[in-house]
């Protein structure tokens, strides 16, 4: 039993699930639109949390937030459920598939058998769509994969009940109620406003101030932790910024694509110009990653090389401060 579901590869999993589920339900909408309206872009240093034995920095909002905000702003309703019992979780999934309803699932990556081994680590905020069942195999549309795939009963249960930070607890979600037409114009403005607010927030770990904070951390790391650890931390930053799912430049290119598409919908030429500017800022993030990689490539980097990548981050923070201030004005 397979639902006639169109799989489309996207950069990021949550955007992709929403975009593909919306398209299935008769509302074709692009990945950048989902990301922008759902205010996906952010920069945040997460204190206390360690990922792969390194500080955690995120370039997008908390898992589930994009869909939640997107739904509220365009006027759709989502049904969400979590479970303590795997049998109940499976029953609810089967019930939906029987009713020809493809659903989104939150899963852990560590036991996703179709992922390359190197990418299987304990990250629990991955998303995919289940669109059918054949014998005891579930048909899977994982948005970051080029094509569709499948998982056995047991494999799916394992990833749905992965443990650790952000444990999915069988989390299942799908849109249930749609307006006649999506109110994109208002939704775009709300999405942009929220992102500007986040990026310019007067909170030290968030947005532009968060970028500056991390720049200062980088300056201190080699002395505080030694070169080996400092390089490991730096490598992890680049991975969080560029690894599968960000579309390049820590989501900045996707955001620029969103502004470009929005300028057409709103008939606002300023957004078109700002899209170009965001692309330039994305390029700066890429340059930062490239220079950081030169440090952790050879293990004996001179001290001033940390200073120079930190300065690059400071520069990016300054550019983004100007950028988001202008963006806020542009949609007034």
């Amino acid at each position: 039993m397979a639902i006639d579901f169109t799989h489309k590869q996207t950069a990021h999993c949550e955007n992709g699930v929403v975009s593909n589920l919306m398209t299935y339900n008769g509302f074709p909408i692009s990945e950048p639109m989902v990301f922008g309206i759902g205010s996906g872009l952010i920069y945040c240093y997460i204190p206390l949390l360690k990922v792969n034995h390194a500080p955690a920095i995120t370039y997008r909002v908390m898992p589930g937030q994009i869909f939640k905000k997107f739904a509220k702003r365009v006027g759709i309703k989502i049904k969400k459920e979590k479970f303590n019992n795997p049998i109940e979780a499976k029953a609810r999934l089967d019930e939906n598939l029987k009713n020809n309803n493809p659903v989104g699932l939150q899963v852990g990556v560590y036991n996703l058998t179709y992922f390359p081994d190197e990418y299987r680590f304990h990250f629990n905020a991955h998303n995919l769509v289940v669109y059918g069942k054949e014998d005891s195999s579930y048909l899977i549309s994982d948005p970051i994969m080029e094509g569709v795939t499948s998982l056995t009963d047991k494999e799916l249960e394992k990833v749905r009940f992965a443990k650790g930070a952000f444990a999915p607890k069988g989390h299942i979600y799908y849109p249930i109620d749609f307006p006649e037409e999506l109110d994109l114009k208002n939704a775009i403005v709300k999405g942009i406003n929220h992102t500007c607010k986040d990026m310019l927030a007067p909170i030290p770990i968030l947005g532009v101030r968060g970028i500056k904070l991390v720049a200062n951390f980088i300056r201190k790391w080699p002395k505080k932790h030694g070169v080996k650890k400092a390089n490991h931390y730096l490598g992890q930053i680049v991975r969080m910024q560029e690894e599968i799912g960000t579309g390049g430049g820590g989501f900045r290119y996707i955001f620029a694509a969103f502004l470009q598409e929005s300028s057409e919908i709103l008939g606002n030429d300023k957004l078109k110009e700002l899209s170009k500017e965001m692309t330039e800022i994305g390029d700066l993030w890429r340059d930062f990653a490239l220079n950081a990689s030169r440090i952790y490539k050879n293990r004996k980097a001179p001290q001033d090389s940390y200073e120079s990548v930190a300065a690059q981050l400071d520069h990016i923070a300054d550019r983004e401060k100007v950028f988001f201030t202008k963006l806020k004005e542009a949609i007034k």
């Binding site: 950048p32 792969n52 680049v238 560029e242 620029a256 950081a292």
Partner: peptide
């Protein structure tokens, strides 16, 4: 100047970071 999507086989700065993480 229009945004498009295209596939990438990988990028050295992050491949090196991943390799280092695996070595670690």
């Amino acid at each position: 100047g229009q945004y498009v999507t295209a596939q990438s086989t990988g990028w050295d700065p992050k491949t090196i970071a991943l390799d280092n993480a695996i070595k670690d």
